[in-house]
């Protein structure tokens, strides 16, 4: 049976997530050109990783679970990358 972790980890994760939400909100009001999208996605990916690592206990879980978690993301990236390889190169 997995041991319960110190609840401080959950509170800190939540505070970090709310801080990142504030950051994404603020950057939306600054004109960064194409970097608005890149910044928004980078922050969203960071938030998703924090949730997966600490709330979903990917940190400290077996490699099998790491593989299962990454598999979904990998297939999504293949789906988007190959589709954009078509759309982004059309004239």
């Amino acid at each position: 049976m997995e041991k319960a972790v110190d609840p401080k980890i959950y509170f800190r994760t939540c505070i970090a997530l709310l801080a990142l939400l504030a950051l994404t909100w603020i950057t939306a009001y600054v004109d960064l050109g194409p970097f608005n999208l890149i910044a928004a996605l980078a922050i969203a990916i960071t938030k998703a990783i924090l949730i997966a690592l600490f709330f979903m206990h990917i940190k400290g879980s077996s490699r099998l679970l790491h593989l299962a978690a990454l598999a979904g993301v990998m297939w999504l990236l293949i789906l988007i990358a190959l589709t954009l390889a078509d759309y982004a190169t059309r004239r």
Binding site: A28, Y29, L32, N36, I43, A44, A48, I51, M56
Partner: peptide, 24 residues
């Protein structure tokens, strides 16, 4: 719990992609 956190992650992407397209 894993399901609930996953639904949270989906929204984490939906919020900037739908509400914050470009700068405001």
């Amino acid at each position: 719990g894993l399901y609930w956190h996953f639904v949270d992650i989906v929204w984490v992407f939906l919020f900037p992609l739908l509400y914050l397209v470009g700068h405001r």
